[in-house]
Design a protein around this nucleic acid. Structure first.
Lengths: 200, 200
DNA sequence: CCGGATTTCTATTGTGCTATAGAATCAGCC
DNA sequence: GGCTGATTCTATAGCACAATAGAAATCCGG
């Protein structure tokens, strides 16, 4: 980001530009998208974008950052809440999938294009991801300790499974007929809880 | 493909070229990769590639086709085999993950870059995918009918879950320390079987 | 309605890329 | 040892793209 825009109007315009970048990157991929494509969405000239960004890569980082933010914070809250392990898994899945409704493009760009970020930006983004992953794993370990989840649960693989399910849903969400957020959430929570909890 | 290469030597050389394309597309993404990059891997000139392919897009299709082929065939065999539903799920997962050992690049390119194929090629590839998906769903339905899997299982979502798990593993396989194919397979089979089967 | 700040514009530079055309080289066989 | 087809080469056309410089337009508080 170039200008330290603080005025609310400026902020809003900047977020419109980021939205446009997200839309274009999601549709065409980072390298397949041109800055001209983004400008077209906004109805401005290609060069005008450089008032908002120093580079195309900076635009990608802004989109990816929007795509990851909040995940770790929400997981942190869930970790601390007094609730059963099953409820915590449900909340994790719910909050993982919910952004698909309003920020689908950002999620897609984060998942597919973050690997093209230049090293420093990539590390910044990866740190947030890692924090989120660790929180999920701790929530599962909590469930194991309390005896609600199976003692022999491989919590690392379980974490990757939960993330894999959620992230894969992002890839076909909107193209899979009949797959509402509610149905996906219900199915996945059901699946994970059955797989994780102790028998009874 | 340009030349109808039939000599075994020519076939082998062509597959070397496709391997190189897979490697480069996997690393840099389709649009981020140049034909020069592929030529560099092979130690030949950029223009020489056009002896093997009519276009960069044709190279992508060849890689994607290699990435999907065999999946549907194997699922077809599993569907017909006399085995328990749990065993069939195990074989499905096993055969879904096994190619990661030898054809990781092809799998990655298929998963991430197939969407950039021109319409006709994309349809050809998608037809194979669809067939694979339908076979998985039929195997699950078979298990429901036989009473081995829960009667209230949402087989469509279960199919997407199985695929989502397997495909997400492809994305981090090789970078996740300690995650051998065997461990991943075991964890995922265990997870899915617990989630799908009737209580007891 | 003035003046500074914000936003968008025109114009351009330089680079990298896919793809084509046609020449040169190589391998095997008669 | 030269013919033949397969493979790789040189050279280049032609276009698209990211990014810069600096001028114009627009907006807003006083």
């Amino acid at each position: 980001m170039k200008a330290a825009a603080t005025a609310p109007q400026a902020r809003r315009r900047l977020s419109e530009v980021i939205d446009a970048a997200a839309k274009v990157f999601a549709r065409r991929g980072y390298h397949g998208a041109s800055t001209q494509d983004i400008a077209d969405v906004l109805g401005i000239r290609q060069a005008s974008l450089y008032y908002y960004f120093d580079s195309k890569e900076a635009a990608l980082e802004a989109v990816c950052a929007t795509g990851v933010e909040d995940y770790a914070e929400r997981a942190q809250l869930i970790l601390k809440q007094p609730a059963s392990a099953a409820e915590k898994v449900e909340r994790l899945v719910f909050h993982h999938l919910a952004p698909l409704a309003e920020r689908h493009d950002f999620t897609l760009v984060f998942l597919r294009e973050r690997r093209f970020l230049p090293q420093p930006a990539r590390r910044r983004i990866r740190a947030i991801e890692k924090r989120y992953e660790r929180l999920i794993e701790r929530i599962l370990q909590q469930g194991v300790s309390s005896g609600e989840l199976r003692a022999d649960l491989d919590t690392r693989m379980a974490t990757l499974a939960l993330l894999g399910l959620g992230n894969s849903a992002a890839l076909w969400f909107g193209r899979e007929a009949g797959a509402t957020l509610e149905r996906i959430t219900r199915s996945y929570v059901d699946l994970l809880v059955r797989a994780f909890r102790v028998m009874h």
